[in-house]
Amino acid sequence: MGFYLLSLTLVLLSGFGFLPSVKTASDYTTLVYKGCANQTFTDPTGVYSQTLSALFTSLISQSSKYKFFKTTSNGGQTTISGLFQCRGDLSNVDCYNCVSRIPEMSNSLCGNTIAARIQLLGCYILYENSGFPQISGLELLYKTCSSSQAVGSGFEERRDSAFSAVESGVVSSNGFYTTSYESMYVLAQCEGDLGTSDCGECVKTAVQRAQVECGSSISGQAYLDRCYVTYSYYPNGVSKKSFSGTGQSTEKTIAIVMGGAAAVGFGVVCLMFLRSMMKKDY
């Protein structure tokens, strides 16, 4: 009997070893969009490049301590202002890892432009040369909507109720707020130095743009200059913890369920085998 128990233990351990591993953390370093100025800089002496590099170095160093930081780098007659912001639910380590990836991406995606904004799922960096034309904080910079449409009635009511909750919640939560309502998950964030009233107005505008632009799409994102809103609808009740802003969330949840089901099924088979061996012994 002891032999059978030892064999069963080894089989169970080896069986679980073959279960698929699933990463639940969202890929916060995925590129969402890039915004590159049309104007480029000429830099025969290398001063501009050095000033921009100093700015990036300062932003990266601060990202291990803060979720939002704004600074200016001076190099003779060249002045470049910049900032970074991380998503409110990122740890300091994740924030640093996110921000530190952007300078190289900026160089690759935008080259020698006098202003650029690189938005990842978990953070963004914005920089601009002194005197660069300013735009309204409510300007729509980027939007995307899922091609999948909600089926059946009640979707718009759920979406609008979740939007309403995030509009009020972001004002009282220091500019970052998430909420879930009947399978609808919504996230909103304002730029770190935006006042409470302006933050509420910005998110309200972003919500309106998402409603108009995305309609019945089951997920969407609306990025304004100083705030953004993302939402995703899970009709099958996927937990908001698996939300990553991409279609990978549902796939990861399915993988977890399948892995768990395989483990349970394998355990039942092994228990039946053990029971059979016990009967034979008796």
Rank of each mutant, 00 (worst) to 15 (best):
residue 140 L to P: 15
residue 69 F to G: 04
residue 260 G to H: 05
residue 274 L to F: 05
residue 264 V to H: 05
residue 103 P to Q: 09
residue 19 L to Q: 07
residue 122 G to L: 05
residue 108 S to F: 04
residue 226 R to F: 00
residue 21 S to T: 15
residue 81 S to M: 01
residue 203 V to W: 04
residue 113 T to A: 02
residue 234 Y to N: 13
residue 179 T to E: 00
residue 182 E to P: 01
residue 113 T to R: 13
residue 221 Q to N: 09
residue 187 L to S: 10
residue 250 T to I: 15
residue 194 L to C: 08
residue 117 R to A: 06
residue 18 F to K: 11
residue 108 S to E: 12
residue 211 Q to K: 15
residue 197 S to A: 15
residue 61 S to Y: 03
residue 24 T to Y: 15
residue 129 N to D: 11
residue 204 K to M: 08
residue 72 T to G: 00
residue 44 P to A: 11
residue 50 Q to W: 01
residue 37 A to C: 03
residue 163 F to N: 03
residue 158 R to W: 03
residue 111 G to A: 10
residue 262 A to W: 14
residue 240 K to Y: 01
residue 175 G to L: 07
residue 29 T to Y: 02
residue 134 Q to G: 01
residue 161 S to L: 12
residue 13 L to Y: 06
residue 232 S to P: 07
residue 14 S to G: 09
residue 273 F to K: 03
residue 73 S to V: 06
residue 15 G to D: 14
residue 191 E to P: 00
residue 148 S to G: 02
residue 206 A to Y: 00
residue 273 F to L: 12
residue 152 G to Q: 07
residue 227 C to L: 04
residue 103 P to H: 12
residue 14 S to P: 01
residue 21 S to P: 02
residue 230 T to M: 02
residue 34 K to N: 11
residue 158 R to S: 13
residue 26 S to Q: 05
residue 171 V to H: 12
residue 213 E to D: 15
residue 190 C to V: 09
residue 191 E to S: 09
residue 253 T to D: 01
residue 74 N to G: 00
residue 191 E to Y: 01
residue 173 S to C: 03
residue 47 V to P: 00
residue 232 S to N: 09
residue 166 V to R: 09
residue 263 A to P: 04
residue 74 N to Q: 08
residue 82 G to F: 05
residue 188 A to I: 05
residue 86 C to S: 11
residue 63 S to L: 08
residue 160 D to I: 09
residue 86 C to A: 08
residue 250 T to M: 04
residue 281 D to Y: 15
residue 86 C to V: 05
residue 266 F to D: 08
residue 251 E to A: 15
residue 194 L to D: 07
residue 168 S to G: 14
residue 251 E to H: 06
residue 34 K to R: 13
residue 13 L to E: 08
residue 146 S to E: 12
residue 31 L to K: 11
residue 218 I to E: 03
residue 220 G to T: 09
residue 266 F to N: 06
residue 71 T to E: 02
residue 193 D to V: 04
residue 192 G to T: 09
residue 155 F to R: 10
residue 282 Y to K: 13
residue 21 S to V: 10
residue 131 G to D: 10
residue 175 G to Q: 06
residue 180 S to N: 12
residue 5 L to P: 00
residue 158 R to H: 10
